[in-house]
Design a protein around this nucleic acid. Sequence first.
RNA 1: GGGGUCGUAGCUCAGCUGGGAGAGCGUCUGCUUGACGUGCAGGAGGUCUGCGGUUCGAGCCCGCACGGUCCCACCA
Length: 887
Amino acid sequence: MSKEMAKTYDPKGIEEALYNKWVDKKYFHAEADRSKKPFTIVMPPPNITGQLHMGHALDNTMQDILIRFKRMEGYNALWQPGTDHASIATEVRIINTLKEQGITKEDLGREKFLEKCWEWRKEYGGRITSQLRKLGSSCDWDRERFTMDEGCNRAVNEVFVRLYEKGLIYKGHKMINWCPVCKTTISDAEVEYQNQASHLWHIKYPIIGTEDYLTFATTRPETMLGDTAVAVNPEDERYKHLIGKKVLLPIINREMPVVADDYVDMEFGTGVVKITPGHDPNDFEVGLRHDLEIVNILNDDGTINENGGKYAGMDRYAARDAIVGELDSMGLLVKIEDYSHDVGTHDRCHTTVEPLVKEQWFVKMDELIRPAVNGIKNKEIRLVPENMEKTYFNWTDNIRDWCISRQLWWGHRIPAYTCSKCGKLIVSRTKPDTCPDCGSTELSQDPDTLDTWFSSALWPFSTLGWPDQTEELEYFYPTDVLVTGYDIIFFWVIRMIFSGYEQMGREPFKTVLFHGLIRDEKGRKMSKSLGNGIDPLEVVEKYGADALRFMLVTGNSPGNDMRFSYDKVEAARNFANKIWNASRFILLNMDGKSVTRPESADLAPVDRWILSKTNRIISDVTDNMEKYELGVAAAKIYDFIWTELCDWYIEMVKPRLYNSDDAASQNAALWTLKKVLITSLKLLHPYMPFVTEEIYCTVKEDTADTEMDDSIMISAWPVFEKDYEFPADEKSLEIIKEAVKGVRNVRASMNVPPKKAAEATVVSDDEAVLESFKAGELYFKALINAPQVSYQKDKAGIPDDAVSVVTGSATVYIPLAELIDISEEIARLEKEEKRLEGELKRSNAMLGNEKFLSKAPESKIAEEKEKLASYEKMIGEVRERLKGLRK
RNA sequence: GGGGUCGUAGCUCAGCUGGGAGAGCGUCUGCUUGACGUGCAGGAGGUCUGCGGUUCGAGCCCGCACGGUCCCACCA
């Protein structure tokens, strides 16, 4: 070998060098090219605030596997990368760092604050993408985008204006979710419900003009400050007479009506509900129906405002305690019950959100969502796994308008302007110079920014140049597959789908491949607060990116969560080492020899067997990958390389490699080894890009093979070759393998020392079977440690006390009489007899069943009959052996 | 309240359109076999959660139950 291969594979150093080579050679880059078929994946843009975690590692590994596979298949494969400005996440982050310096964002002012944000993005925006490179991600970095770059901003403004002009974006006073800590609205999707232990306060309000009271229960007593009615069910006999009467709101001393509304559940609590239209979505609806006043009692920071009278300025929870105390002292607190219920919290900061009424911008959903529903129903877009459709429709069926305005500074500013003179609202792609109504130049832009998902919803086409009709857009859109976690189906997937249909008139991608969450070894979610997160980069450092990648996609199926485990990483690392060593072995043996394509007559049956097997694995793996069954494909490659190639073929071929006398046979073996190795490397490459590339290049260099490519990643994906299909050899080799396993088994169970050689006799009445054993004599002898093998059609001359290995097509006899205990051999054969009896019983029952014979498919019946014959033959042999031994 | 999903060998999980139960790890027994001990050979270990149904035939399809898990939902 010109290049010495180390005894164990060490990824350190190798990975980075190879990655740099790929980048330098522009292998990741894709250009629109009409002569080739495109295959496109847009990367879910990671947040610029982010650090690479296991979720990213899985997500990007899956994408890289698909893109490398398709690239090798000859597609013009584009993997479009980029990052997300992550409006609220980034803003919160920067506010916190400012806080350490004792500065608020208001101190800084909007402009200065945004400068800070861009600085942050400059400093950290590249961190996560450089981490992605360590995984081997083959995305087109020349095309890297950012959700807030100039092009994306134009796309955002364009969409906003279009939707506004169609009446699908509107400004309105509606009940929204307010985060008092982030001081912004958030969408319904951003509200996370948490079960919290709390209380149910039973309170009573005096009924005006009587001595009586109305008692009700509430979980938020402080909202009483905003009560404007009390409601009962119209059918409720207990309260019918009170409908239309008035109650007095204590503390505030507001007179309010008792209204009748179906919304009230007579069964729950006392059947009376206090109505706070300003702070409860249901009450808001009730308020609309009964024309009730909306009283807002909260400031933006969650303190009580001037409508709360003497409680003004007090924090919402302090006010709660104080109000309960005051009601108690007034004798209006009936009782306090323990009560646990779901409380809406902000998914970013976990602050309890307050529902309140504010004027905000909304996207009208009912019309937009229709094509997004149809696209899934008519399979224009396929969800993998399919059952995700139910989750999808669950959301689309209950869709509500999307609140898109945020009281944040870092994000896409809403392209709406107000004339300070006449109040005219202008929505425009660029800032207008004058008011179209009054001509004033005093126009102020809406201070709010857009929900961060508004820009990521456009990602599949904005990254390709939209709103310009670019060549890329024309060529690469719609993209082929989106790979993402099921946890952002509502935030992102659905919004991309309706945006794609609305703006492009077509689906943004043809398939969505969902993956699950990576949990820790105990099955817990990895989280910062638990501190149980495992840094993918540490794993890469220690075991190599290939090992991590392989581990992440093996042993699980689409959409299911999986556990991280170092044992599994180690197993993957060992696999990389295994193929490394197999390659080392092959190169060692090829050293100095010019290996040429053999005459077909020179191929041994065992060569034909592995070539035929290789063919089978090629079609299987390709098929699995087309169906996104990445884990299944990986397992098949693993098994093929480790078991068939290493454990069997290499071992079977060794005697020929060590025998230079038969040069033609040696050449055939080496040629086959190389061919199968290269094919295996190619199949494995999408999963383990680094080792496979390193080995491929070493083989090319060592064998000075000009037909090989400069890199495995641009080489052609293996295809089924009719010339190498040998079903007969596949079958005959399986018989020999079965015999080898049987002999080894017998030797082990009889405690025959491994070094003890013993002759063997193969007996079969099938001439062809004997022939195939003869053809494989060289390795058969080596594998069972027999100095001599003889062949015969019957058992003439076989001693009664020889050990026998009975297979369906042949029996192998080994004279081990001096070594074994006859009674043990009898026991072993009796066990075998019993097993066969069981099989016979099952098989006979099946074939004796008339319904099976009349209803089962022809092939199944034939197969079963074949089995039965084989069992009968085997049990006959076994019984005969037993008879001989018992003598 | 609605829905998803899982329940297969000691552990972690595969199992494609229903047709003789699999892998990795662990465990046990051997092995300095001229690629690899990150290895080689062999073994043990499962009434596929339970019950019922469809079927010639069910780990797989249907129903119910039990247990775990996740999502959605305005019950004060």
